[in-house]
Structure formats: C-alpha cells, structure tokens
Design a protein around this nucleic acid. Structure first.
Lengths: 267, 267
DNA sequence: ACATCTATGAGGTCAGACCATTAATCTGAG
DNA sequence: CTCAGATTAATGGTCTGACCTCATAGATGT
C-alpha cells in the first residue's frame, strides 16, 4: 500500500477538511511520523501484489523462509503477516510437501466477516439492537431480490432447512442453526455472495446471545412453532415472486423473534 | 470457543441435513479430525474471555511473556494470536512501560471491515456488481432511516462534505473522499454504527477501482457536477424528512455513478 | 509393475537473545 | 525542599537458529 495508516480514509479527510475550511492560519501540522511495524510492511507487500492483480485466487506464495529472505525480514515477521492474512480469509496454509503444500491465495471471506462481527458484538461495539436493525434492512432486501430471481435449486435449499425445523422434538441448537441456514439460503437466492456472507456473519454473531436469550423463554416450543409458521409464509411469498410481501413478512418475522426474546436487546 | 472449526455454522448443517433427509443408510461419516494450531488456541482463549464478558473494552491483557507462560506456549505463538486480534480491530498494542503501555482491548471494527472487503473485492471474491448492489440496498436503508432521525449535527456533517465537493477545481481524489464522507455521514445520521462502518468499508473497498475508472471518463468535471447536484437533492430530502424520496434519489445516484463508470463493472 | 522406504521441503513451534521506547524512580545540584 | 537529569525496569518489536510434524516425490527393492 502506498498510502499508509489509511484509517478508512474518512477520518483523515475530515481532519484535512477543517484545515481547508479554516485556511488562512496554515500552521505546520506536525503529525507524528508513523513507523509501520515490520509485519505491516510484509502485509502491504503482499497486499500490493493482490491489488495489482499479480496474485490471484489459487496462486502460491513463496515459502516463508524464501519470502523472509526476499523481503529482508525475519521469518517471525513474515509469519505474523501471514497469520493476519489468514484470519482475513485471504490465504490458506498447509504443511507437507509437493502438490497442495505451502501457502496459497484463498477466498474465505465469510469466516473472516463472521469473526469480526462476532467479536465486536461481544465487545458491545455494535449493540444487539443495531445488529438487528441492520439485519432487518439487509434481509428485507434479500427477500425482495430473491423473489425476483429464485430458482428451483434455491427453493430446494429453503425447503431443506424448513424440513429440519419441521422435525418434532428438535433441539434449540439445531433449530437455530437451521433457522440461520434458512435465512442465508434466502440471501443466497439473490445470487449475491456478499449478501449471503453478510447475512451469515450477522446471524452467526448473534448465535450465542440468541441461544442464551431463548433459555429465558416460557414456552420455547410454541415460539419455535410460531417462527416456523412465518418461515413457511416467507418461503411461499418468495416462491410466488411477491417481493414486497416477502420483505414485509421478513421484517415482521425478525421483529417477532426480537420481541419474544427481550433478554436479547437489553444485553 | 467451545465449538471449533465452526465454519460459519451454515455449511456444516447443510451437509448434516442431507444425511438427515437421506437417513436410512447411516454411513459412519469420517470427518477428518481438525487439529487447531497453537495460535488458534491462544485466540480462542482470549476470545472466550471476551465472550464471557471477563474482558471488555479498555481492559489490559497480560504482558506477552506472561501470557505465554500462563498458557504454556511460546511467545511467538502468543504474538501471532495478538497480531490476528489486532488486525480484527479487537486489541491495540503499544510499547514502553507503565500507564498506557502493553496490550489493551480496543474497538476499531471499521478498519477491520474495510480491510476484509478491500482485499476480497481485489480478489474478485465479491464482484464489483455485487458490491454495488449491496451498497444500493444498504444506502437506501440508510437514507430512509436517516430522514427520520436526522439531527442538526448530522446535517452539519453532510453540509461540510458538500462544501468540499462544491469547491471548484478540486482534485479527483479529494472529491471522491468527500463523496465517501458524505455517504458515510448519511449512514452515521441513522445513529447505527454498524450501518456507517459497513457503508464506509464498502465504499472504501471500491476506492481504487473508482479512481481508476474515473480516468476513462471523457468529462470528469461534468460527471462530478452531476453527482454533486444529486448529492444536494439527497441532502434536501433527508433534511425534509422525506425518507422514501431520499431512498429513491440515493438509488438513482448510485446507478448514475455506476453507469457513468462502465470500466467499473467489467473489472 | 507394484509396494515400500527415504529424502526433501513445506509449515508449526520453541527458546533465547537483543533492541527501542516509555514511565517510574532515584540522585544530586541549587 | 525542589526540580532537572540519569538510571532502571517493564513492555512490545525483531531476529536467529534450531527442532518437530507431515505429506509428497522419487528411489529402491521385490
């Protein structure tokens, strides 16, 4: 990366704007020189190759030792950089020798998104209320778009998840996971991978709080039945291609769940 | 984390559903035992403290050497884990001694989200078309919600960004960054941090492609002027509290930009 | 031709050293 | 007694070099 400490760009430019507006004064602006750590430089070096298209999915990276000597840094720094990229779902490493051994450019964004959201939800940087509001908006869009694009295959996916939840005597965990799968399947039906990854990440970030809140419910089976009834209605609306209705039902569905789990929002 | 290799949950359950549906056969299902690496275990240990609420924002972590000996692993493994958490915006480290030195739980989710999206857009795991579609839906919601909740302060933010873009003879980069700031400010006006972080991350992930595509435009100044006119209209709709109109204008605005930059979508 | 064994090369882990930075503490001059 | 300056200790940052495990490619033997 040429522009270091880019900090999402926004903040830096907001600050810059104040000097532009205030103009006149033109004080020297001594910003403390940032000294990027070695592993950041390694990340930037690899990121640059990716940005410029030199490295694409499936390509191998040089061996750690080789990369270290090429970049003139220690193997430890290279490894720290690789672990970061790995956590971002950008690379995949495996041991052994020959075919398939080594480090490769991968594409596993959903796990990375899930982890980021899960941790920050737990840290209350994002409140459960915010996350639910985002989920409502995202899944409204998913439902509407899915209604216009749904295929046989996608419907089969929806029905598979519904079938699991229709099974009597199912455990809370299994129900919840099938529930997640149902909503992700709707997002997948839009054909937009980013939608479905975001949906999965958001939903999974709430997994633990949801399961915890469910234990405070008087009649879990009744709630599950109610939700499941709504699931069927959503499926029907999507299958009928009625996007507006699907969106509306989805919003009501999520609100039903949120209101039935009061322990969730005052977390 | 109790559940290892959680893999977003979804995939595992989809697979499980097929066996549940197919039933009868009941083949053994030999899933290769996952061997989590040491640094993953360290991450899980720290994550567990966060999930259980033992560690919250601002709390210090033990020193690297101490943590290593407590967990019975090498300092290198601890450092790899810390680098991952740092890249996820969950911790912040600084050297030295005494107050403020050491590693602390932090809260910088937006940078992490930006990096994830930026890299995966570059890797074409998310196509530009997908990202733009997501952006349309997200910002439609932002505009609608913002219209209902906008404050004096938020309007001032919007006007500040507009003022920058109204400045004549502005460079492409400055315009684009102010443009980003404008849209993020709308998201911020919803009061939903997740909205605004996602908006910023998505927009920043497109920064490089947008700037590149802009260079193929015949009359950049005219395009900027057209976009800026739309910006003003959006601002007015939000200020007037007309959510539906704001959403509609936002969608048209993004489509205008996308169509004026054909190089963007066939990237 | 096939099955086995071995060498190789990759990531994974570790122990220990040294450096740079920072705050707290000590020391001595005024 | 006060305050400037030197010292020290704690912390993250980096490097070195070693050893381990593992999976394959290729050699070896039958």
């Amino acid at each position: 990366m040429s522009e270091n400490a880019d900090s999402t760009g926004t903040a830096a430019h907001a600050a810059r704007s104040s000097t532009a507006a205030g103009a006149a004064t033109a004080r020297p602006e001594w910003t403390p020189v940032s000294r990027p750590s070695t592993h950041e430089l390694v990340i930037d070096a690899i990121e640059e190759q990716i940005m410029s298209g030199t490295l694409t999915v499936g390509d191998p990276l040089p061996a750690e030792r080789e990369l270290a000597s090429k970049l003139g840094v220690s193997r430890a720094s290279v490894r720290e950089a690789l672990r970061v990229l790995e956590s971002l779902g950008v690379i995949r490493s495996s041991g052994g020798s020959g075919r398939g051994a080594g480090t490769f450019i991968a594409s596993l964004p959903s796990e990375a998104l899930t982890r980021v959201l899960r941790l920050h939800v737990a840290l209350a940087n994002f409140s459960v209320g915010e996350v639910i509001e985002t989920r409502v908006q995202l899944e409204r869009s998913s439902a509407a778009l899915a209604s216009a694009r749904v295929t046989e295959d996608a419907l089969a996916q929806l029905n598979a998840s519904l079938a699991i939840m229709d099974t009597p005597g199912i455990s809370l965990e299994v129900f919840n996971d099938a529930d997640t799968a149902f909503h992700v399947a709707i997002a997948q039906a839009t054909g937009n991978q980013l939608f479905s990854d975001l949906t999965g990440a958001i939903r999974n970030s709430l997994r633990r709080p949801i399961l915890a809140a469910f234990r405070d419910v008087d009649d879990p089976a009744a709630l599950m039945a109610a939700l499941q009834k709504q699931h069927h209605a959503i499926r029907d609306a999507i299958a009928a291609g009625d996007g507006a209705r699907a969106a509306q039902l989805t919003e009501e569905h999520i609100h039903t769940a949120a209101e039935a789990l009061p322990a969730l929002t005052d977390l």
